[in-house]
Design a binder for these strands. Sequence first.
DNA 1: TCTTTTCTACTGGTTTTCCAGTATATTTTG
DNA 2: CAAAATATACTGGAAAACCAGTAGAAAAGA
Lengths: 208, 208
Amino acid sequence: MNNIVIVDDHPIVIGGLLALLQADKALQVMATFTAGQAFLSFLAGADFIDIVLLDITLPDISGVEVCKQIKKISPETKVLIISNHSERSIILQMLQQGASGYLLKNASSEELVRCVHDVLEGKVAFSAEVMTIMTRPLQNERKATPHLTKRERQVLSMIAAGRTSASIAEELCVSQFTVETHRRNLMQKFEAGNTAALIRMAAEQQLL
Amino acid sequence: MNNIVIVDDHPIVIGGLLALLQADKALQVMATFTAGQAFLSFLAGADFIDIVLLDITLPDISGVEVCKQIKKISPETKVLIISNHSERSIILQMLQQGASGYLLKNASSEELVRCVHDVLEGKVAFSAEVMTIMTRPLQNERKATPHLTKRERQVLSMIAAGRTSASIAEELCVSQFTVETHRRNLMQKFEAGNTAALIRMAAEQQLL
DNA sequence: TCTTTTCTACTGGTTTTCCAGTATATTTTG
DNA sequence: CAAAATATACTGGAAAACCAGTAGAAAAGA
């Protein structure tokens, strides 16, 4: 018998999930919550929870944070996200935070139950629509990565590591003016006004 | 009949994949490459490729970059990663770059063929071991996120957007000295020596 | 109501980045 | 071999960040 907890801000959604899951004898809904904090307080003192069905948009803290806390407090508890967010980056962010599955709220009942069981069995589970989102051609979700020379990538990496231009110059055996020119060129290529924006954009484009 | 291309730096691996895939009448291996650049040149002038089996470690450019280029040049071409890299962050990075599947080189022949077919059918596919990696408890893969106050998160976000302290002060209707104090506190919490390191760490912890 | 936390603001100063330009040498490419 | 790209380096200066400290007001929590 698997213990389930449902965390969603809409009581109607919780009601629907309850009706669906209670028909499955292998599943036991032990509690439901409409807010993240309340659930986390419960989690700290609860019996073991096999799986949490978690929305991302909650009234108090975000589902991202709740997922992190679940994996910190009870690492063996699986997390299956049920959300309206359909962006690939959000899906991957939830996987990065330890979620084992993701489906959209428009998934069929059959898909929901299948995903619950797949996750309980230790698999990664997506609904069909999430599969489509994950595999469809990228649609320029982000600005094109500017072409960087080898030296520029090297300087960028060192800047991101917190080094000053003087320190970088010393390590690369060049003048600080040279490093400053590389910085300027990097800022022009990323169209960044300062180092903070440069590093943020580089991180977004996975160049660090 | 699905057209396949194999890109791997080890000819022996290519040989093994070839032997395996040629037994499947639905699959046609149209070419193999041991370097990324050579493959990308081929791709630009090739007939349509249904799926590319791609290693990450290549002698010239990385599989990450090759994957990006594949999705840019031929968005409908599927990418299935076959790699020795088993870190969750790398797996997710490949998915972020448009890969539809990921398996480790120790996957069985059956798993490999199943993944190829699943990806061709528009699914996301992982080998069993990759599923395990994706769902096992996180193991403090990264430093704990420091506790930030609401105002600190606000200032951090604006710094990351490239704003100067003066500009942030103006928008928040506080003194520039106040913003500078928030910056200092942020740098202390993240143990960062300058803004570049601060923003990089914040990005790593998905706070931006 | 008291304590703690958060937010606010200042001093006086140093260090670092950013600016816009100019220019030569080396390496790579066609 | 010539052209283009990359790397290097400098000027003179302004703008911004960083430093370490101090300190009071407001909000939140116990």
